[in-house]
Design a protein around this nucleic acid. Structure first.
Lengths: 210, 210
DNA sequence: CCTCCTACCTAGCAAGTGCTTGGTAGGGTA
DNA sequence: TACCCTACCAAGCACTTGCTAGGTAGGAGG
Protein backbone atom coordinates (compact mmCIF):
# COMPACT_ATOMS: atom_id res chain seq x y z
CA UNK A 1 0.00 0.00 0.00
CA UNK A 2 1.57 3.26 -1.13
CA UNK A 3 1.88 6.11 1.29
CA UNK A 4 0.01 8.44 -1.01
CA UNK A 5 -2.90 6.05 -1.11
CA UNK A 6 -3.09 6.03 2.70
CA UNK A 7 -3.03 9.83 2.74
CA UNK A 8 -5.95 9.88 0.34
CA UNK A 9 -7.85 7.38 2.49
CA UNK A 10 -7.38 9.45 5.64
CA UNK A 11 -8.37 12.63 3.92
CA UNK A 12 -11.43 11.01 2.34
CA UNK A 13 -12.49 9.62 5.72
CA UNK A 14 -12.37 13.11 7.18
CA UNK A 15 -14.53 14.55 4.41
CA UNK A 16 -17.01 11.65 4.46
CA UNK A 17 -17.36 12.08 8.21
CA UNK A 18 -17.88 15.84 7.98
CA UNK A 19 -20.18 16.08 4.97
CA UNK A 20 -21.54 12.59 4.50
CA UNK A 21 -20.55 10.02 1.90
CA UNK A 22 -23.16 10.96 -0.68
CA UNK A 23 -22.60 14.68 -0.27
CA UNK A 24 -18.84 14.42 -0.71
CA UNK A 25 -17.89 14.43 -4.39
CA UNK A 26 -14.78 12.97 -5.91
CA UNK A 27 -13.91 16.53 -6.84
CA UNK A 28 -14.08 17.54 -3.17
CA UNK A 29 -11.62 14.79 -2.31
CA UNK A 30 -9.32 15.67 -5.18
CA UNK A 31 -9.39 19.38 -4.28
CA UNK A 32 -8.43 18.56 -0.71
CA UNK A 33 -5.56 16.44 -1.99
CA UNK A 34 -4.44 19.12 -4.44
CA UNK A 35 -5.01 17.00 -7.56
CA UNK A 36 -7.75 16.65 -10.17
CA UNK A 37 -10.68 14.31 -9.73
CA UNK A 38 -9.65 11.99 -12.53
CA UNK A 39 -6.31 11.37 -10.85
CA UNK A 40 -8.05 9.66 -7.96
CA UNK A 41 -8.79 6.77 -10.27
CA UNK A 42 -5.12 5.97 -10.49
CA UNK A 43 -5.32 4.97 -6.80
CA UNK A 44 -8.86 3.65 -6.51
CA UNK A 45 -11.24 1.86 -8.82
CA UNK A 46 -14.28 3.75 -7.57
CA UNK A 47 -15.61 6.03 -4.85
CA UNK A 48 -17.16 2.95 -3.26
CA UNK A 49 -13.76 1.31 -2.93
CA UNK A 50 -12.57 4.23 -0.83
CA UNK A 51 -15.32 4.04 1.75
CA UNK A 52 -15.19 0.25 1.67
CA UNK A 53 -11.55 0.25 2.67
CA UNK A 54 -12.09 2.84 5.38
CA UNK A 55 -14.92 0.88 6.99
CA UNK A 56 -13.51 -2.63 6.72
CA UNK A 57 -10.15 -1.58 8.15
CA UNK A 58 -11.85 0.01 11.11
CA UNK A 59 -14.21 -2.90 11.71
CA UNK A 60 -11.44 -5.47 11.53
CA UNK A 61 -9.53 -3.71 14.28
CA UNK A 62 -12.61 -3.18 16.43
CA UNK A 63 -13.65 -6.81 16.35
CA UNK A 64 -10.13 -8.02 16.95
CA UNK A 65 -10.05 -6.12 20.23
CA UNK A 66 -13.60 -7.19 21.10
CA UNK A 67 -12.67 -10.84 20.65
CA UNK A 68 -9.63 -10.40 22.85
CA UNK A 69 -11.86 -9.14 25.62
CA UNK A 70 -14.34 -11.95 25.21
CA UNK A 71 -11.60 -14.58 25.26
CA UNK A 72 -10.47 -13.50 28.71
CA UNK A 73 -11.78 -15.09 31.86
CA UNK A 74 -13.78 -12.21 33.27
CA UNK A 75 -17.11 -11.72 34.97
CA UNK A 76 -19.98 -10.11 33.06
CA UNK A 77 -19.56 -6.77 34.73
CA UNK A 78 -15.86 -6.61 33.95
CA UNK A 79 -16.47 -7.68 30.39
CA UNK A 80 -19.04 -4.96 29.99
CA UNK A 81 -16.63 -2.42 31.41
CA UNK A 82 -13.83 -3.61 29.17
CA UNK A 83 -15.95 -3.56 26.05
CA UNK A 84 -17.27 -0.07 26.78
CA UNK A 85 -13.75 1.22 27.34
CA UNK A 86 -12.58 -0.51 24.18
CA UNK A 87 -15.40 1.13 22.25
CA UNK A 88 -14.62 4.64 23.44
CA UNK A 89 -10.95 4.10 22.70
CA UNK A 90 -11.97 3.03 19.23
CA UNK A 91 -13.94 6.24 18.80
CA UNK A 92 -10.79 8.03 19.84
CA UNK A 93 -8.52 6.24 17.38
CA UNK A 94 -10.87 5.92 14.40
CA UNK A 95 -13.01 8.97 14.85
CA UNK A 96 -13.81 9.56 11.20
CA UNK A 97 -14.43 5.90 10.42
CA UNK A 98 -16.83 5.55 13.35
CA UNK A 99 -18.74 8.62 12.24
CA UNK A 100 -19.04 7.29 8.71
CA UNK A 101 -20.19 3.93 10.03
CA UNK A 102 -22.83 5.59 12.19
CA UNK A 103 -24.22 7.76 9.44
CA UNK A 104 -23.91 5.63 6.33
CA UNK A 105 -23.98 1.97 7.36
CA UNK A 106 -27.74 1.61 7.09
CA UNK A 107 -27.81 2.85 3.51
CA UNK A 108 -24.60 1.20 2.35
CA UNK A 109 -25.53 -2.20 3.79
CA UNK A 110 -28.33 -2.45 1.23
CA UNK A 111 -25.77 -2.91 -1.52
CA UNK A 112 -24.17 -6.34 -1.94
CA UNK A 113 -20.67 -4.97 -1.70
CA UNK A 114 -21.28 -3.88 1.88
CA UNK A 115 -23.18 -6.93 3.08
CA UNK A 116 -20.42 -7.50 5.63
CA UNK A 117 -21.80 -4.52 7.52
CA UNK A 118 -24.87 -6.58 8.36
CA UNK A 119 -22.71 -9.51 9.48
CA UNK A 120 -20.72 -7.26 11.76
CA UNK A 121 -23.90 -5.77 13.18
CA UNK A 122 -25.18 -9.24 14.01
CA UNK A 123 -21.94 -10.33 15.66
CA UNK A 124 -21.94 -7.08 17.58
CA UNK A 125 -25.45 -7.65 18.91
CA UNK A 126 -24.76 -11.25 19.90
CA UNK A 127 -21.63 -10.25 21.75
CA UNK A 128 -23.34 -7.57 23.82
CA UNK A 129 -26.43 -9.62 24.50
CA UNK A 130 -24.29 -12.51 25.72
CA UNK A 131 -22.60 -10.24 28.22
CA UNK A 132 -25.95 -8.93 29.43
CA UNK A 133 -27.49 -12.40 29.70
CA UNK A 134 -24.48 -13.76 31.58
CA UNK A 135 -24.66 -10.82 33.93
CA UNK A 136 -28.34 -11.33 34.68
CA UNK A 137 -27.77 -15.07 35.17
CA UNK A 138 -24.85 -14.64 37.54
CA UNK A 139 -26.51 -11.82 39.45
CA UNK A 140 -24.17 -9.06 38.37
CA UNK A 141 -27.02 -7.24 36.66
CA UNK A 142 -30.48 -7.01 38.05
CA UNK A 143 -33.10 -9.57 37.04
CA UNK A 144 -35.90 -8.80 34.63
CA UNK A 145 -33.87 -6.58 32.30
CA UNK A 146 -35.24 -6.37 28.77
CA UNK A 147 -31.99 -7.54 27.16
CA UNK A 148 -33.01 -6.39 23.72
CA UNK A 149 -33.90 -2.92 24.91
CA UNK A 150 -30.86 -2.53 27.14
CA UNK A 151 -28.60 -3.62 24.31
CA UNK A 152 -29.97 -0.93 22.03
CA UNK A 153 -29.64 1.73 24.70
CA UNK A 154 -26.03 0.84 25.32
CA UNK A 155 -25.12 0.49 21.68
CA UNK A 156 -26.69 3.81 20.74
CA UNK A 157 -25.31 5.76 23.63
CA UNK A 158 -21.79 4.51 23.18
CA UNK A 159 -21.54 5.01 19.46
CA UNK A 160 -23.53 8.17 19.11
CA UNK A 161 -20.93 9.83 21.33
CA UNK A 162 -18.89 10.16 18.17
CA UNK A 163 -21.07 13.15 17.34
CA UNK A 164 -19.64 15.26 20.11
CA UNK A 165 -16.51 13.49 21.34
CA UNK A 166 -13.33 15.18 20.17
CA UNK A 167 -10.05 13.27 20.27
CA UNK A 168 -7.58 15.37 22.22
CA UNK A 169 -10.33 17.46 23.80
CA UNK A 170 -11.28 18.16 27.40
CA UNK A 171 -12.28 14.58 28.13
CA UNK A 172 -10.19 11.51 27.39
CA UNK A 173 -11.81 8.36 26.05
CA UNK A 174 -11.09 6.66 29.37
CA UNK A 175 -12.75 9.43 31.37
CA UNK A 176 -15.85 9.39 29.20
CA UNK A 177 -16.02 5.60 29.41
CA UNK A 178 -15.71 5.65 33.19
CA UNK A 179 -18.43 8.26 33.61
CA UNK A 180 -20.68 6.49 31.17
CA UNK A 181 -20.26 3.18 32.97
CA UNK A 182 -20.96 4.92 36.22
CA UNK A 183 -24.31 6.12 34.91
CA UNK A 184 -25.14 2.90 33.13
CA UNK A 185 -24.39 0.66 36.10
CA UNK A 186 -25.69 2.78 38.95
CA UNK A 187 -27.84 5.54 37.49
CA UNK A 188 -27.92 9.25 38.21
CA UNK A 189 -30.40 9.20 41.08
CA UNK A 190 -29.08 10.03 44.53
CA UNK A 191 -28.77 7.16 46.99
CA UNK A 192 -27.37 6.66 50.48
CA UNK A 193 -24.81 4.33 52.02
CA UNK A 194 -22.61 3.73 49.02
CA UNK A 195 -19.71 5.57 47.50
CA UNK A 196 -20.49 6.79 44.02
CA UNK A 197 -17.10 8.17 43.15
CA UNK A 198 -15.64 7.13 39.79
CA UNK A 199 -13.90 3.96 40.75
CA UNK A 200 -10.87 3.50 38.57
CA UNK A 201 -12.15 1.19 35.91
CA UNK A 202 -9.40 -0.56 34.01
CA UNK A 203 -9.34 -2.33 30.68
CA UNK A 204 -7.97 -5.87 30.67
CA UNK A 205 -5.05 -4.56 28.66
CA UNK A 206 -4.19 -2.03 31.35
CA UNK A 207 -4.42 -4.73 33.98
CA UNK A 208 -1.99 -6.81 31.97
CA UNK A 209 0.42 -3.90 31.74
CA UNK A 210 0.21 -3.26 35.48
CA UNK B 1 -53.35 24.82 3.67
CA UNK B 2 -54.76 22.52 1.01
CA UNK B 3 -55.23 18.85 1.78
CA UNK B 4 -53.11 17.85 -1.18
CA UNK B 5 -50.24 19.92 0.14
CA UNK B 6 -50.39 18.15 3.49
CA UNK B 7 -50.37 14.78 1.73
CA UNK B 8 -47.24 15.78 -0.15
CA UNK B 9 -45.60 16.94 3.08
CA UNK B 10 -46.30 13.63 4.85
CA UNK B 11 -45.09 11.62 1.91
CA UNK B 12 -41.96 13.71 1.56
CA UNK B 13 -41.21 13.32 5.26
CA UNK B 14 -41.38 9.55 4.90
CA UNK B 15 -38.98 9.55 1.97
CA UNK B 16 -36.57 12.04 3.58
CA UNK B 17 -36.51 9.87 6.71
CA UNK B 18 -35.91 6.65 4.79
CA UNK B 19 -33.37 7.79 2.21
CA UNK B 20 -32.02 11.06 3.55
CA UNK B 21 -32.84 14.58 2.40
CA UNK B 22 -30.01 14.90 -0.08
CA UNK B 23 -30.53 11.45 -1.52
CA UNK B 24 -34.24 11.99 -2.11
CA UNK B 25 -34.88 13.73 -5.42
CA UNK B 26 -37.88 15.82 -6.35
CA UNK B 27 -38.60 13.13 -8.92
CA UNK B 28 -38.74 10.51 -6.15
CA UNK B 29 -41.31 12.60 -4.31
CA UNK B 30 -43.34 13.23 -7.43
CA UNK B 31 -43.28 9.55 -8.40
CA UNK B 32 -44.54 8.60 -4.96
CA UNK B 33 -47.32 11.14 -5.34
CA UNK B 34 -48.19 10.00 -8.84
CA UNK B 35 -47.39 13.31 -10.53
CA UNK B 36 -44.46 14.79 -12.44
CA UNK B 37 -41.63 16.55 -10.68
CA UNK B 38 -42.42 19.95 -12.12
CA UNK B 39 -45.91 19.79 -10.64
CA UNK B 40 -44.47 19.89 -7.14
CA UNK B 41 -43.57 23.51 -7.74
CA UNK B 42 -47.20 24.40 -7.86
CA UNK B 43 -47.36 23.52 -4.15
CA UNK B 44 -43.87 24.46 -2.96
CA UNK B 45 -41.34 27.05 -3.94
CA UNK B 46 -38.39 24.69 -3.48
CA UNK B 47 -37.28 21.38 -2.05
CA UNK B 48 -35.92 23.30 0.93
CA UNK B 49 -39.37 24.69 1.69
CA UNK B 50 -40.69 21.15 2.06
CA UNK B 51 -38.17 20.04 4.65
CA UNK B 52 -38.36 23.43 6.35
CA UNK B 53 -42.08 23.05 6.92
CA UNK B 54 -41.71 19.45 8.14
CA UNK B 55 -39.06 20.37 10.70
CA UNK B 56 -40.51 23.62 11.99
CA UNK B 57 -43.97 22.12 12.48
CA UNK B 58 -42.49 19.27 14.49
CA UNK B 59 -40.24 21.51 16.57
CA UNK B 60 -43.05 23.93 17.37
CA UNK B 61 -45.13 21.13 18.81
CA UNK B 62 -42.23 19.59 20.72
CA UNK B 63 -41.28 22.80 22.44
CA UNK B 64 -44.86 23.65 23.24
CA UNK B 65 -45.15 20.44 25.23
CA UNK B 66 -41.72 20.92 26.79
CA UNK B 67 -42.70 24.37 28.01
CA UNK B 68 -45.89 23.00 29.48
CA UNK B 69 -43.86 20.55 31.54
CA UNK B 70 -41.41 23.18 32.70
CA UNK B 71 -44.22 25.52 33.75
CA UNK B 72 -45.60 22.96 36.17
CA UNK B 73 -44.58 22.88 39.81
CA UNK B 74 -42.61 19.63 39.87
CA UNK B 75 -39.41 18.35 41.41
CA UNK B 76 -36.39 17.78 39.22
CA UNK B 77 -36.86 14.04 39.09
CA UNK B 78 -40.49 14.33 38.03
CA UNK B 79 -39.63 16.95 35.46
CA UNK B 80 -36.98 14.68 34.02
CA UNK B 81 -39.43 11.82 33.90
CA UNK B 82 -42.06 13.96 32.26
CA UNK B 83 -39.69 15.35 29.65
CA UNK B 84 -38.38 11.90 28.77
CA UNK B 85 -41.90 10.56 28.36
CA UNK B 86 -42.85 13.60 26.31
CA UNK B 87 -39.83 12.99 24.07
CA UNK B 88 -40.62 9.36 23.41
CA UNK B 89 -44.23 10.23 22.70
CA UNK B 90 -42.96 12.80 20.25
CA UNK B 91 -40.89 10.14 18.50
CA UNK B 92 -44.07 8.12 18.33
CA UNK B 93 -46.18 10.89 16.82
CA UNK B 94 -43.60 12.53 14.54
CA UNK B 95 -41.44 9.58 13.66
CA UNK B 96 -40.35 10.77 10.23
CA UNK B 97 -39.73 14.34 11.33
CA UNK B 98 -37.59 13.23 14.27
CA UNK B 99 -35.53 10.98 12.00
CA UNK B 100 -34.97 13.83 9.56
CA UNK B 101 -34.01 16.15 12.40
CA UNK B 102 -31.52 13.62 13.75
CA UNK B 103 -29.86 12.95 10.42
CA UNK B 104 -29.95 16.30 8.66
CA UNK B 105 -30.04 19.04 11.30
CA UNK B 106 -26.29 19.41 11.56
CA UNK B 107 -25.87 19.99 7.84
CA UNK B 108 -29.02 22.06 7.32
CA UNK B 109 -28.27 24.36 10.25
CA UNK B 110 -25.28 25.73 8.36
CA UNK B 111 -27.63 27.48 5.95
CA UNK B 112 -29.24 30.74 7.05
CA UNK B 113 -32.72 29.49 6.32
CA UNK B 114 -32.40 26.83 9.01
CA UNK B 115 -30.67 28.92 11.66
CA UNK B 116 -33.66 28.30 13.92
CA UNK B 117 -32.38 24.74 14.31
CA UNK B 118 -29.43 26.12 16.26
CA UNK B 119 -31.74 28.23 18.43
CA UNK B 120 -33.87 25.21 19.22
CA UNK B 121 -30.78 23.18 20.03
CA UNK B 122 -29.66 25.83 22.49
CA UNK B 123 -33.06 26.09 24.18
CA UNK B 124 -33.13 22.31 24.35
CA UNK B 125 -29.76 22.13 26.08
CA UNK B 126 -30.60 24.87 28.57
CA UNK B 127 -33.85 23.16 29.48
CA UNK B 128 -32.26 19.79 30.20
CA UNK B 129 -29.28 21.24 32.01
CA UNK B 130 -31.55 23.26 34.24
CA UNK B 131 -33.40 20.11 35.25
CA UNK B 132 -30.14 18.32 35.98
CA UNK B 133 -28.69 21.24 37.96
CA UNK B 134 -31.87 21.61 40.01
CA UNK B 135 -31.80 17.90 40.71
CA UNK B 136 -28.23 17.95 41.93
CA UNK B 137 -28.92 21.04 44.07
CA UNK B 138 -32.03 19.58 45.70
CA UNK B 139 -30.43 16.18 46.18
CA UNK B 140 -32.63 14.28 43.76
CA UNK B 141 -29.60 13.43 41.64
CA UNK B 142 -26.25 12.50 43.05
CA UNK B 143 -23.63 15.19 43.57
CA UNK B 144 -20.62 15.57 41.32
CA UNK B 145 -22.42 14.77 38.08
CA UNK B 146 -20.76 16.19 34.99
CA UNK B 147 -23.88 18.04 33.86
CA UNK B 148 -22.55 18.62 30.38
CA UNK B 149 -21.70 14.97 29.88
CA UNK B 150 -24.92 13.63 31.39
CA UNK B 151 -26.95 15.98 29.24
CA UNK B 152 -25.33 14.63 26.09
CA UNK B 153 -25.83 11.05 27.14
CA UNK B 154 -29.51 11.61 27.80
CA UNK B 155 -30.12 13.64 24.69
CA UNK B 156 -28.40 11.14 22.43
CA UNK B 157 -29.98 8.07 23.94
CA UNK B 158 -33.47 9.47 23.85
CA UNK B 159 -33.41 10.77 20.32
CA UNK B 160 -31.32 8.08 18.69
CA UNK B 161 -34.07 5.64 19.66
CA UNK B 162 -35.83 6.87 16.53
CA UNK B 163 -33.52 4.56 14.61
CA UNK B 164 -35.13 1.43 15.96
CA UNK B 165 -38.39 2.48 17.60
CA UNK B 166 -41.42 1.59 15.51
CA UNK B 167 -44.74 3.29 16.22
CA UNK B 168 -47.31 0.59 16.72
CA UNK B 169 -44.65 -2.06 17.38
CA UNK B 170 -43.99 -4.37 20.33
CA UNK B 171 -43.13 -1.57 22.72
CA UNK B 172 -45.22 1.51 23.32
CA UNK B 173 -43.56 4.90 23.74
CA UNK B 174 -44.59 4.87 27.40
CA UNK B 175 -43.04 1.46 28.01
CA UNK B 176 -39.77 2.44 26.39
CA UNK B 177 -39.72 5.69 28.35
CA UNK B 178 -40.34 3.89 31.63
CA UNK B 179 -37.60 1.33 31.03
CA UNK B 180 -35.19 3.99 29.88
CA UNK B 181 -35.82 6.09 32.97
CA UNK B 182 -35.36 3.02 35.10
CA UNK B 183 -31.88 2.51 33.67
CA UNK B 184 -30.97 6.17 33.66
CA UNK B 185 -32.01 6.77 37.25
CA UNK B 186 -30.92 3.53 38.90
CA UNK B 187 -28.58 1.71 36.49
CA UNK B 188 -28.49 -1.90 35.43
CA UNK B 189 -26.24 -3.25 38.19
CA UNK B 190 -27.82 -5.57 40.75
CA UNK B 191 -28.32 -4.19 44.20
CA UNK B 192 -29.94 -5.33 47.46
CA UNK B 193 -32.57 -3.95 49.75
CA UNK B 194 -34.56 -1.99 47.21
CA UNK B 195 -37.27 -2.91 44.78
CA UNK B 196 -36.15 -2.37 41.22
CA UNK B 197 -39.37 -3.27 39.51
CA UNK B 198 -40.61 -0.79 36.91
CA UNK B 199 -42.41 1.61 39.15
CA UNK B 200 -45.30 3.09 37.27
CA UNK B 201 -43.91 6.35 36.11
CA UNK B 202 -46.62 8.80 35.11
CA UNK B 203 -46.51 11.90 33.01
CA UNK B 204 -47.96 15.02 34.59
CA UNK B 205 -50.75 14.79 32.04
CA UNK B 206 -51.65 11.29 33.13
CA UNK B 207 -51.65 12.41 36.75
CA UNK B 208 -54.06 15.17 35.84
CA UNK B 209 -56.36 12.68 34.14
CA UNK B 210 -56.27 10.32 37.12
C1' DC C 1 20.43 5.90 -23.79
C1' DC C 2 16.29 3.39 -23.47
C1' DT C 3 12.54 1.46 -21.07
C1' DC C 4 9.34 1.18 -17.51
C1' DC C 5 6.62 2.86 -13.65
C1' DT C 6 4.22 6.03 -10.65
C1' DA C 7 1.52 9.90 -10.21
C1' DC C 8 -0.62 13.02 -12.25
C1' DC C 9 -3.26 16.19 -16.15
C1' DT C 10 -6.65 17.33 -20.01
C1' DA C 11 -10.91 16.91 -21.81
C1' DG C 12 -15.13 15.19 -21.86
C1' DC C 13 -19.28 11.84 -21.67
C1' DA C 14 -23.71 9.96 -19.99
C1' DA C 15 -26.71 10.18 -16.40
C1' DG C 16 -28.73 12.58 -13.24
C1' DT C 17 -29.94 17.14 -10.36
C1' DG C 18 -33.34 21.16 -8.91
C1' DC C 19 -36.08 24.11 -11.13
C1' DT C 20 -38.56 26.96 -15.04
C1' DT C 21 -41.67 28.00 -18.75
C1' DG C 22 -45.74 27.68 -21.24
C1' DG C 23 -49.72 25.16 -21.67
C1' DT C 24 -54.26 22.49 -20.45
C1' DA C 25 -58.33 19.90 -18.37
C1' DG C 26 -61.98 20.40 -15.34
C1' DG C 27 -64.72 22.51 -11.91
C1' DG C 28 -66.90 26.64 -9.67
C1' DT C 29 -68.88 31.39 -10.18
C1' DA C 30 -71.20 35.40 -12.30
C1' DT D 1 -71.43 32.23 -22.17
C1' DA D 2 -67.28 34.02 -20.24
C1' DC D 3 -64.05 33.97 -16.80
C1' DC D 4 -60.97 32.36 -13.28
C1' DC D 5 -58.71 29.00 -10.27
C1' DT D 6 -56.55 24.72 -8.89
C1' DA D 7 -53.82 20.99 -10.06
C1' DC D 8 -51.45 19.15 -13.10
C1' DC D 9 -48.39 17.95 -17.79
C1' DA D 10 -44.59 18.44 -21.44
C1' DA D 11 -40.29 19.79 -22.49
C1' DG D 12 -36.13 21.23 -21.42
C1' DC D 13 -32.21 24.23 -19.34
C1' DA D 14 -28.04 24.88 -16.64
C1' DC D 15 -25.43 22.46 -13.75
C1' DT D 16 -23.22 18.55 -11.13
C1' DT D 17 -22.26 13.76 -10.67
C1' DG D 18 -18.93 9.50 -11.01
C1' DC D 19 -15.99 7.95 -14.15
C1' DT D 20 -13.01 7.27 -18.62
C1' DA D 21 -9.47 7.63 -22.38
C1' DG D 22 -5.39 9.17 -23.83
C1' DG D 23 -1.36 11.73 -22.75
C1' DT D 24 2.88 13.50 -19.99
C1' DA D 25 6.70 14.70 -16.54
C1' DG D 26 10.17 12.75 -13.83
C1' DG D 27 12.68 9.31 -11.51
C1' DA D 28 14.63 4.30 -11.17
C1' DG D 29 17.00 0.49 -13.29
C1' DG D 30 19.33 -1.98 -16.97
Amino acid sequence: MSQRRQELLDLSARLFAERGYGATTVRDIADEAGILSGSLYHHFQSKEEIVDEILSTFLDELFTSYREVMAQDLGARQKLEAVVVESFECIDRHHAAVAIFQNEAKKLAQSARFSYLNDRGREFRELWQQILQDGVRTGAFRPGLDIDLVFRFIRDTVWVAVRWYQPGGRLSAQTVAAQYLDILLDGIAARRGRSRVANGIQTPKEKQRA
